[in-house]
């Protein structure tokens, strides 16, 4: 069974009383351990799709199954627990907690999972910080590091709970090209190392080329999808 399965999913928002469809009868499946990208212009439905997969929002119609769980059936607490155990997030604005240092930011999701012993927790954090090249910055606070470094910390934070999926909404939008590539390559490396499924959205065609599977969205529809090689040839 696919790790992520969307079946005729629609999502409609009510904007000032006017219904606006963000996703229209969208169906797709994402297998385990893949590196998937959603590309499309602003308002195409990328973020909405990631929010639905991330159990942050519920579909208006259709079914969203993540790791076999129908996200529409989860209440607030169950959804939080599900996210904590199954999904890691990387945000466009990094969203590190300003009062926690680098080490503590990575540690935070683990504190939500009660069963991780202190020793294992520490090993996991240091190992990840080492892998993303932030070990020597572990005592610094978010306002003391650069954007690229923040996003590397965010990647480490997303991976620290050993999630099955990492969702990254425009993770490189606030980074320069070189840093963006570095972050994406770190994500790629992590995907290979931990076997995590990475799903990210972007509107940067150079970055999207790094994905194994690319979906193009427009006005709430998938207008194109395919493997990396296929996609490059169609460009």
């Amino acid at each position: 069974m696919s790790l992520i399965h969307l079946q005729e999913v629609t999502k409609t928002y009510n904007t000032a009383g006017v219904p606006v469809a963000a996703l229209k009868n969208l169906s797709l499946s994402i297998e385990r351990q893949t590196f998937v990208s959603f590309i499309g212009p602003s308002g195409s439905g990328k973020s909405t799709l990631l929010n639905l997969i991330g159990t942050l929002d519920k579909p208006t119609g259709g079914k969203v199954l993540v790791d076999g769980v129908d996200v529409a059936t989860l209440n607030r607490s169950d959804a939080a627990a599900f996210r904590g155990n199954t999904i890691g997030f990387v945000f466009q604005n990094f969203n590190l907690i300003p009062v926690l240092n680098v080490y503590e930011n990575v540690e935070y999701p683990l504190l939500m999972l009660k069963h991780v012993p202190v020793k294992e927790r520490r090993e996991r954090i240091l190992n990840l910080l080492d892998k993303v090249g932030m070990l020597d910055q572990k005592d610094k606070y978010p306002n003391q590091i650069s954007g690229g470094q923040k996003q590397r910390v965010a990647v480490a934070r997303a991976l620290v709970t050993n999630p099955k999926i990492v969702l990254a909404d425009e993770p490189t939008a606030n980074l320069d090209h070189a840093t963006a590539f570095k972050v994406i390559s770190i994500m790629h490396e992590m995907q290979k190392t931990f076997g995590t499924t990475f799903v990210f959205s972007t509107h940067d065609p150079k970055i999207v080329g790094e994905a194994e599977l690319i979906y193009t969205l427009e006005d709430g529809f998938i207008i194109n999808n395919g493997r990396k090689e296929q996609n490059r040839s169609t460009r």
């Binding site: 991330g54 942050l56 607030r76 607490s77 939080a80 627990a81 996210r83 904590g84 155990n85 890691g88 997030f89 945000f91 969203n95 907690i97 935070y108 999701p109 939500m112 999972l113 934070r157 997303a158 709970t161």
Partner: peptide
């Protein structure tokens, strides 16, 4: 929103 997204229960 961030802490809720990364699994902090209400």
């Amino acid at each position: 929103g961030t802490i809720a997204a990364i699994g902090t229960p209400p």
